[in-house]
Amino acid sequence: MERYSQPTQPEREQRGKGFPKEHRLLLPEEAPQTVELPAVAGHTLTVRRGLSLLLVGGYSPENGFNQQLLEYQLATGTWVSGAQSGTPPTGLYGHSAVYHEATDSLYVFGGFRFHVELAAPSSELYSLHCPDRTWSLLAPSQGAKPRPRLFHASALLGDTMVVLGGRSDPDEFSSDVLLYQVNCNSWLLPDLTRKFIAVPASPRPGTPAH
């Protein structure tokens, strides 16, 4: 009987050549593993193409910051976790996330970020390329980054991420609107967005309000 031996790394790479990465057969050590969902708060849960939910970040007093990338597969009703590459966040809480279908990527902004033994408000923007689970820490192609923002809301309008509300530090609320343009990798900051937001005029004295 022929004995089976584990393939070497060059053999693994050779087997995958000629096929798109998302269509390659996963070897046992590459396949996502079914996991139990940890108790977390302050995380994001984002729909990907109506097929799965991506859970990023979160914190619990028992387990600390969640550093796993967890995916709930709607077809099977199971949670899975697989290897990540690139520059993943080391711990996030109170951030936001939006899914951009054209690039099959998740954009994760702000929150409390755990980094080098310290958790502090963050202005960082991460992208996750979902097919190969690769993270990137994005620096704007032009212009500056926004101030830190946490416990805010984000939504995607076309190719623009809109960030609203939240706090710029633990004791300061923010009413500024931030716009991130995915295709340009650039931010429109409050000094620009305020020009496009109409502020209702205060009613004149003696004028009934409706």
Rank of each mutant, 00 (worst) to 15 (best):
Y4A: 08
S5T: 14
S5V: 04
P10A: 09
E11K: 05
R12Y: 14
Q14K: 13
R15E: 14
R15D: 06
F19Q: 12
F19A: 05
P20G: 03
H23N: 10
L25E: 15
E30C: 05
V35T: 10
V35R: 09
E36G: 13
L37R: 13
P38L: 10
A39C: 09
V40T: 12
G42Y: 08
T44R: 04
L45G: 01
T46G: 00
T46C: 02
V47M: 07
V47R: 09
R48D: 03
R48P: 00
G50A: 08
L51I: 02
S52L: 07
L54W: 14
G57S: 12
G57D: 06
G58Q: 06
G58L: 03
E62W: 09
G64R: 12
F65I: 05
N66M: 13
N66S: 15
Q67N: 13
L69N: 11
L70E: 10
E71G: 02
E71T: 10
Y72T: 03
L74M: 11
L74N: 04
L74A: 02
L74Q: 01
L74K: 04
G77A: 05
G77E: 09
T78G: 03
V80Q: 12
G82Q: 09
Q84Y: 04
Q84D: 00
T87D: 05
T87K: 05
T87G: 02
P88I: 01
P88D: 09
T90L: 12
T90P: 01
G91T: 04
G91K: 01
G91N: 01
Y93P: 00
Y93I: 00
G94D: 01
G94K: 02
G94S: 06
S96A: 15
A97K: 04
A97E: 11
Y99V: 00
Y99P: 00
H100M: 00
H100F: 12
H100W: 13
E101V: 08
E101Y: 08
L106F: 08
V108R: 04
F109N: 14
F112L: 15
F112G: 05
F112V: 10
R113A: 09
H115S: 14
H115K: 12
H115Y: 15
E117L: 11
E117C: 08
L118T: 12
L118E: 12
A120G: 03
P121G: 04
D132F: 02
D132L: 03
D132K: 07
S136P: 03
S136E: 15
L137F: 06
P140D: 07
S141V: 07
S141G: 05
Q142W: 12
Q142E: 14
P146I: 11
A153F: 12
G158V: 08
D159N: 15
T160G: 02
V162S: 09
V162N: 05
V163E: 04
L164G: 03
G165T: 03
G165Y: 02
G166L: 09
G166W: 08
G166I: 04
R167C: 11
D169L: 10
D171R: 13
E172V: 15
F173Q: 15
F173R: 15
S175N: 14
S175A: 12
D176I: 03
V177I: 12
V177P: 00
L178P: 05
L179C: 06
Y180L: 02
S186K: 14
L189G: 00
D191Q: 12
D191L: 10
D191E: 15
T193I: 07
K195L: 15
F196A: 15
V199A: 03
S202V: 10
P203D: 02
R204G: 05
P205E: 13
G206F: 08
G206C: 11
T207A: 11
T207G: 01
P208A: 14
